[in-house]
Design a protein around this nucleic acid. Sequence first.
DNA 1: GTAGGGTTAG
Length: 647
Amino acid sequence: MEAAASLPLPASRFLSPPPHPTPAAAACCSRRNISCARAAPRALEAPQASRPPPRPSPRRSAVAEVKAAPDPVAALTRFEDVLQTQDCNIILRHYGETRRWDELSKVFGWMQEHDMLNIASYSSYFKFLGLSRNPARALQVYGAIRENPTRIHVSVCNSVLGCLVKNGRFDSSFKLYDEMIREGLSPDLFTYSTLLSGCMKLKQGYTKALELVNELNSRGFQMDSVIYGTLLAICASHNCCEKAEEYFQKMKDEGHKPNLFHYSSLLNAYSENANYEKADLLMKDLRSSGLTPNKVILTTLLKVYSKGGLFEKARELLTELEASGFAQDEMPYCILIDGLVKERKIWEAMILFNDMKEKGVKSDGYAFSIMISALHRGGYREESKQLAKEFEAKNATYDLVMLNTSLRAYCSTNDMESVMIMLRKMDESNISPDAITFNTLIRYFCMAKVYHLAYKTIQDMHTKGHQLNEELCSEIMMQLGEAGFPSEAFSVYNMLRYGKRTVCKSLHEKVLCILVPAGLLKDAYVVVKDNSEFISRRSLGNFARSFMASGNINLINDVMKAVHRSGWRISQDIFGKAIQRYIQKPDKKQLLLCLLDWMTGQGYSVDSSSRNLLLRNAQLFGQKQLIAEILSKQQGASRITSQRHQK
DNA sequence: GTAGGGTTAG
């Protein structure tokens, strides 16, 4: 404070004509938290023509100066003796309302350092952090609040929750809400409408909304028109048409007059099932209640007709929309074009699309993407690609859907150059690919037989956390195997296997049939060890024989056990191959003895040629006696087992 | 001047 006062301040800021009231009086008023402007009885004095206009109070002019300052923090520091928390809040809101997020955070930080935060500061700041898409910062600031009364203050809580919901962090908003309740929050209707709006885009949103409605009822709250509005929208987006009707009626019964938003939500709920009879009745109700349908209502009605296949009525309505100037953007056309396309009236759709263009209606890509996809689906690949090119020539901006749509059109006509242009556009526009993008590319690379690119794309897709398409990837796994890339094939297998979903049982055998001929026996062993029950005897046998012949000798016994666990009786020739391997490596005698012991335990025995081989070479192991004993024990055990089998 | 919601197209 002292430091600030000693700064070389420009004289004009403080030495302007004496303020009214005096600084001392202002300080006195502000300490008692009385607005100086109100305390001064200027309004009662008859204004004289000759009197100068009243001067703003020092606090008000300080606020004005900070708002106008190029560096708000420096300006705040200059006025820190004058400004109070509510003044700083005005400044904070100013930066929020003018969307100067950087200054907003700096002002908040300054207030924090100077211990000048109150409930209103937090509430406003969280609201603006929501608008500036910065929920992480809101959580950080909220988490740092130590005082419990502030932490559980209802408007602070509501604004943090609102910030999360606005940014799509629905799950964390519900979690945080539970925590707030545990800490002592008493929610109000604002809290509930905030949380309910989070249910709109949630998969299980309707169920969650019901929970919240029950909770607010049990706390003794009455639903108001805002809550009903949110609920109707939730019903519409979750295809709960009857529930929407019920709420609409209940709301009316409780004396709330529905507005156009309520009507359009219910109308939208009717459009999902194309319930045009009810929609027509609702329109009558709307008009008789004195409301006038607006663009959105009429466009939603068009959706009802279009989804219901009532194309004549839809066309009439579109003409009406055009006449009212409500068809200046492409949306109503898109609705009708989409309806026609879904009824396979693709050429009618095309005619309407061309009409729209001739009328000079600008497309941001929606109408184009509907037509491009429709042509592609209908097998009109070249026409589809031509439209993609037309859009590309007219429009510089793309979004993810339009990029995916164009990409598919180019891929299916094998236009590699255009594919690459689309990928570059994607990079330039900072658009992250989604699962559709990846699968389109993977399919294309596979079709074009550039398997290494298909493989790279699968890797990329997996790294970015997308669920792989099993059918497609397993096809590429096979192709990689055939093309001589068994390690890559195995890597695709692992990405599928260790992705979240369970994989098709036949996948294991497929990869095994790639790994074994390629000599990747250790990888093959990994596959067999975990999935032997899904692998055919034939493939198991091939694997075991190959492994005994050239697999890692230290794993031979493990492989035997794994194959045995599948329920398959290991054939003699496989044991024979294993024994030949061991004889070549006398230093592995312990492993050999283990194998022979294990065989005895499982009722296996070596055949006569292996037996002779062993006895002949027993001195190599220096265990002639021991080996002879084991073999004779094995024969005895085996005799009993085979007798048992014969019975 | 602390906090709330909702409508149409790929």
